[in-house]
């Protein structure tokens, strides 16, 4: 059940990405999976002292979240946030974020 929903969200994210590229507008929230839009508060279109995520692949983001969750990768804050999301949720969020440009 959960898997199906994730796949749907991922496809939705990809479609939105195509729309975005053609329209040159910010991505719709319509397909944003739970938690994803909060990420944009720190990670925007342009990098600052914090990275932009749009030039990362979905698997890069998903792997980073997994490593933050397990503690394999050190962080000042992302380790605390990653623990609030399941692997499935992280995967959906990663797909949506990587579709933003």
């Amino acid at each position: 059940m959960r898997k199906i929903r994730t796949v749907t969200t991922t496809i939705g994210g990809a479609l939105t990405a195509l729309l975005f590229v053609s329209a040159g507008q910010a991505q719709s929230l319509r397909d944003a999976p739970p938690g994803a839009s909060s990420c944009l508060g720190c990670h925007g279109a342009q990098p600052t002292s914090l990275p932009a995520l749009s030039n990362l692949s979905a698997s890069d983001i998903e792997n980073a979240m997994e490593q933050y969750r397990s503690g394999a990768r050190e962080a000042t804050l992302m380790n605390r946030i990653a623990k609030g999301f399941t692997p499935e949720e992280s995967k959906a969020i990663a797909a949506w974020l990587s579709a933003k440009k």
Binding site: L40, G41, C42, H43, G44, T48, S49, L50, T76, L77
Partner: peptide, 20 residues
Amino acid sequence: SVRAAEASYAEGWYKTITTE
């Protein structure tokens, strides 16, 4: 170094969120 990094991330957050 960790405290300095968080001070710098605070600035980054402010720039990103006010742009959004």
